Amino acid sequence: MFKTKKICPAIFLSVGLFCLGDSALASESNYEINSIDELKSEIQGSVIKVDSLQDAEKKEIIENTNPEVINQYIDLLEEDLKDLDSTLIDVQQDGYSSEVIHELPKSGGIVKVETSTDIISVEDNFNNIMSRAFIPNISRKFGSYQYNIVYKVENLLLPDAALGLVTYYSVGSYGLKATSCSNSGTKGSLVTDISASCKVTDDKAEKVGYDINAQGDFKITHGIGGVNAKQLYGTITSRVYWNAKGTSAQSVNESYTADF
């Protein structure tokens, strides 16, 4: 691909952003790639050859690219994430899991949202399971359940990262209760640190038509030694909605939103 001419000590990688502050390091003579068009051309050519770039290949391209151009690419990725429709309805096509992919047109990446929930009883949901097209309502027998969301940002140049939120809840004659949450599924990389926290923001749904919610907050910091690092903030919110009442089970909907 390239012979590395210069490895800059202040490169910052993440799902969203990284920054170099020394303008002297950005001299065009030190790099093979000095424009966003050249960068996109190199990425696209490499992807055609190997289908997708591995982290080592991404690192090699980065080391041979003017830092100012890298920052331009990061800006495009950030714009993509902010432009993405924040209301992402969860369609669990096999009754307990789903994978929804959203393209990021400016940066050439994708957002892949994977969700899963406790397996639905075929006896309780026979008609919905048979259709497999869309399951807006889930029949939950009285008991405890969890709703898992993993929000993956996969882009052409930077190491991928994942943001996770798990909502634990119970179902009973009282309606719905959110009991706790976790950030299980969150994953950074060797050059990406993700600080994650979560909280239950609405813990009870005591009437049909009400919902319970949990919120995951994420701070993505990327860099070597923390120098000149930029940060990206994101929030994932889960929603479990009480749709209809039963004597031994409740009908619920599960969905989420994501904002950057």
Rank of each mutant, 00 (worst) to 15 (best):
N183F: 15
G164N: 00
L158G: 06
K152F: 10
G172T: 01
S182A: 10
S180L: 14
V153H: 08
S182M: 13
T167Q: 03
Y174K: 02
Y169G: 00
T179E: 15
S173R: 08
D160G: 05
S182T: 04
V153W: 02
S180I: 13
V166M: 11
S173P: 12
N155F: 07
P159L: 10
V166R: 02
S170E: 15
A161S: 02
Y168A: 06
L176I: 04
S180T: 12
L163D: 07
N155V: 04
L163C: 01
S180F: 14
S182G: 05
A178Q: 09
L157W: 03
V166F: 11
Y168S: 08
P159H: 02
S182E: 13
V166N: 02
S180R: 06
L165W: 01
Y174R: 06
V166G: 05
S173E: 14
V171K: 02
S180K: 09
A178R: 08
S180V: 13
L158W: 05
T179W: 14
K177F: 15
K152I: 07
Y169C: 07
K152T: 03
G172V: 10
A178M: 13
D160C: 09
L156S: 01
T167H: 06
S173F: 15
K177A: 13
G164T: 09
G164P: 09
S180G: 12
Y168T: 06
G172D: 13
V171P: 06
K152Y: 05
A161R: 06
A162M: 04
A162P: 07
L165R: 00
E154M: 11
S173Y: 15
V171R: 08
S170N: 07
L176S: 03
L158V: 02
N183Y: 13
S170D: 14
V171E: 08
V153L: 11
S173H: 11
A178H: 01
T179Y: 12
L156D: 07
N155T: 00
L157N: 00
Y168E: 09
L163Y: 00
N155R: 03
D160S: 08
Y174F: 15
E154H: 09
A161F: 07
L176D: 03
A161L: 09
A161D: 05
K177V: 13
L176Y: 05
S173A: 12
C181Y: 07
C181M: 12
L165H: 04
S182R: 09
L165E: 08
V171H: 03
S173D: 15
A162E: 10
P159A: 01
L158K: 02
L163M: 07
